[in-house]
Design a protein around this nucleic acid. Structure first.
Lengths: 167, 167
DNA sequence: GGCCATATTGAAACGAAGTCTCAATAGATG
DNA sequence: CATCTATTGAGACTTCGTTTCAATATGGCC
């Protein structure tokens, strides 16, 4: 039986433990410069409690007139960087659309609510056993796998408030 | 332990058991008309022994001057139809790019060679147990999951003939 | 075989998502 | 503060996919 360490992100006002300070320290710790655009992007990212797409962020940053004007390329590049240093995790939706969620470093998998985007993270990877079997049976050198689970969370089962998961 | 029924597609000249006749029968059996464009697309699809993208097919069909001119929309629509009747299976690559492979109806998962595209299909879903656990632990109503495994097949481990999996 | 209702098609415009280029700018380090 | 170099932004560009709509072809029926 799998040993599932589960972490649920479901409280809008206490979305995740990442703070701007931590993220910025992580950035510079990895040798990345702490620029104004990056800070604005980190701000925007931390505001999200649900999976979001790159294009969504671009739109948000374009609308907020306070911060600096941030180009599309910069947003995409920064999201890549943040994913590389495990501040963000990139999740490919069943349709193939990539989205990002905050702060689940290491090998994790996710259970996402298709309605409200609530995310449950679990560290136990049920594929480990399978990988062993596949390795011995096929002699493949297995390098990667994709596993994400989708459904509807308890709250959304009752209220049928129809929302749409970000495209 | 999982019970893995594995099917390997690795012989270029005996790629899969699907024939044009079978596919066409399946199409009409589902109420779809047997048009010339569809026949050309089925031909092209059956020629593939590796995962292919929609855009790849569009290009191939545009290059072959013999058959009818086939519009991009028709290719996309037909691939959708073929996937709906389980002649094709749509697989999302780690990067998010959708590709298609032949003839693995039902609930299956795949192990793909990142180099040559060889595909191993297995019916046993290691996620079943996990789904049970997640259901009772989180009360989510679980509806879908994505699981694909990627690696390098034995042949490609030896010859380092570098190829690229279709984008 | 010929008719007809309608499923299907293709061309092209459109849209979304993401990449690339390159000159200009701005961190960080000494 | 000067310098080296990472970073940026604007926009052109590519790729992938969808939509529209008039024209066409298919399959069932007589």
């Amino acid at each position: 039986m799998y040993h599932c360490d589960m972490t649920t992100h479901e409280h809008p006002h206490q979305p995740h433990t990442l703070t701007k300070a931590i993220v910025e320290k992580t950035l510079s710790g990895h040798g990345y410069r702490l620029t104004a655009p990056r800070q604005a992007i980190v701000d925007a990212v931390l505001r999200h409690t649900r999976p979001f797409s790159a294009e969504q962020l671009v739109a948000e940053l374009a609308e907020s007139p306070d911060g600096p004007k941030i180009g599309r390329a910069t947003v995409y590049r920064t999201l890549e960087v943040l994913a590389a240093i495990d501040v963000l995790t990139r999740i490919v939706q069943p349709g193939g659309h990539p989205t990002y969620i905050c702060g689940t470093p290491g090998h994790r998998h996710h259970l996402l609510c298709e309605n409200c985007g609530k995310t449950v993270t679990f560290t136990a990877c049920p594929v480990d056993d399978l990988v062993h079997r596949l390795t011995t049976d096929t002699n493949f050198e297995i390098r990667d796998h994709v596993l994400e689970v989708f459904g509807v969370c308890p709250t959304c089962q009752h209220h049928d408030n129809v929302q749409t998961v970000p495209a």
